[in-house]
Design a protein around this nucleic acid. Structure first.
Lengths: 334, 334
DNA sequence: TTATTCCGTGAAAGCGGTTTCGCGGGTAGT
DNA sequence: ACTACCCGCGAAACCGCTTTCACGGAATAA
């Protein structure tokens, strides 16, 4: 079937008794059009039910009104509700400014990968990166003039706008809490250590140890990948190599839950014999048995901050990096 | 900064020594172009790094290559991992066919609402609906010739292509299982009864009762809204009005978890004193304590089936509705 | 050999907007 | 009254493709 026929500028112009250029000026907020003519245009739009064709506008203006939100991972990340929540924060801010979100969940890869190709295609007016294993693509796109925001502190000292959560502070207070609860041997299950967030959380854990006058052995530091399964795998290994382990800080809630599953199945009660803290404060943290002590980050605010930084750039305004605080939420598991 | 300058057909045509129409014919798979000329075009594309401008192509052809995936809800649905998983199934199938997904999570509302406006705007070549409280918009769009697929059985007998899970059979076997475990008084917490899925799950529950020669009292049938909080609220009420309750079938895993939280906090052990079954088999079902007995639906396959039905329509092929089976997964809670 | 048909290809119109440049009328200054 | 400047507005070029129509050469049939 033929697509629905909808009025164009030509019809609006004829109805209002003006030119198409005037219609364009009025609908795009040009204040120089005589108020009486402008009102005639608005009346015609109302009467005829006109809607702008965004495809034609994008071709003519060179701007699509789309902002890419890039998650350097695969679609299984959506089993972690963090991503839906943070994305909703970004989308709300962009939508308030007449922009739309294009969500890209794929490995960012090299300069000739799928994500790079898409971002260079001119289809988006800017890009917000959520997970980064390397700054190579980001630096390349910045040189080409694409407005960018990244979440997480950049690897290099490039002048890239970013928002972040206080990873170091959150991990530090989680580890301090475990120690204050009497834990003598505390392990960490990190995220992918290629990301700055995982590094900063590890640094917070190490700083808490330095301040208590101890240093954890290398086998207490496990590199996970934020997945439930990696939490389980490392918990298993920790029990084998450290039977006297009495505390674990996992760098996200999913890995914390994986660890708890293993400990409980091994007959080690949580928090009776071993205490566990996570990071994020996802719903899974609240509903688990035992409910999870965790470092809460304001995920909606993180998304909104990223969106606001993008809007500021597109409007040619000044901006500063934004670091959001964390809060340790004490529940049953520690 | 000015957008990156990229070669257009004019440049490709000049380099290959052909017209722009020929370039368009070659790149769109027209077999009538002389093979030598066609090869010269492909060589020029390779040499110059040409990428099609999809905005210009959409304007010229009247097709955008975008398919809307509509979830009649708000963004909090992403706290339920069902949605990320089912969407990934759809996206994979569309991408294999050169199409892209536009995800819309918003109340569908009336014919003059935001979703309706967008779908009538000509920006998408088709739409897949995931939750529907009413067929009004779908029937309207079908009349206008927009290719459609819905998940869930349509309310009316309209000739709308759909995919579904066997809701009736899943609920029936869940309720039968509770009865076979000795449960004498089984409640149900439904989803929004305006959706056909929730109705069918209720019907399955009622059929299992009919076959056992009993009928549940009306106060054992609670209408939830698939949220964790509604599961808790109805569980609280059920305990008050039915102290001898010994079984609950919840129409999704989140409500089941909400119910378990309330029962455990009230000192009723699961499954010792009261057995609980959910629906979906989300990760939350596996990680909870106790782990959740649930009706597993193949959510990826549901998404892929919806995508395949859309592709068939766009290609003008015949198609049948697709009903996917369920499987009762026995864990600790029942 | 001549006439007719077919087909590959190029020129250009069009898709629906944005934006530029020039024109004419009005206003201000001398 | 005349001159210079300003500004609102319209005509039309342009954005980068797709597709239509017409042309010329080749092939086929009479």
């Amino acid at each position: 079937m033929a697509p629905l026929l909808r009025p164009t500028y030509a019809v609006i112009a004829k109805t209002a008794g003006v030119s198409e250029a005037t219609v364009s000026r009025v609908l795009n907020g040009d204040e120089s059009v005589h108020p009486d003519r402008a009102q005639r245009v608005r009346d015609a739009v109302e009467e005829l039910g006109y809607k702008k064709n965004r495809v034609a506008s994008a071709l003519a203006s060179g701007r699509t009104g789309l902002i890419a939100v890039v998650i350097d991972d695969d679609l299984s990340v959506f089993s972690d509700p963090f991503w839906g929540t943070v994305t909703s924060g970004v989308s709300r801010v962009l939508q308030e400014n007449g922009l739309h979100t294009v969500l890209m969940v794929a490995p960012v890869g090299a300069l000739d990968g799928g994500v790079a190709h898409y971002l260079k295609s001119g289809e988006v007016d800017g890009a917000i990166f959520f997970v980064l294993h390397s700054d190579i693509l980001v630096n390349h796109l910045k040189k080409q003039g694409l407005p960018l925001v990244i979440t997480g502190t950049p690897h290099s000292n490039a002048d890239i706008p970013f928002v972040d959560t206080d990873n170091f502070g959150g991990a530090y207070s989680a580890t301090k809490h475990l120690m204050s609860q009497g834990c003598k041997k505390v392990a960490i299950i990190t995220g992918d250590i290629g990301t700055t967030a995982a590094k900063q959380r590890l640094d917070g854990y190490l700083q808490a140890h330095r301040e208590s006058g101890t240093l954890p052995s290398k086998s207490l530091i496990c590199e996970g990948d934020y997945s439930f399964e990696s939490g389980k795998a490392h918990a298993q290994k920790l029990l084998e190599t450290h039977p006297d382990l009495d505390g674990v800080f996992a760098s996200n809630d999913l890995m914390a839950m994986g660890a708890i599953t293993v400990f409980e199945n091994a007959g080690k009660s949580v928090p009776g014999q071993i205490r566990v803290v996570g990071f994020d404060d996802a719903l899974i943290a609240q509903t688990s048995r035992p409910s999870l002590t965790t470092v809460r980050q304001d995920v909606v605010a993180l998304g909104e901050a990223a969106g606001s930084l993008m809007i500021a750039q597109l409007n040619g305004q000044d901006f500063e990096p934004i670091i959001l605080p964390t809060e340790l939420v004490i529940r049953e598991s520690a």
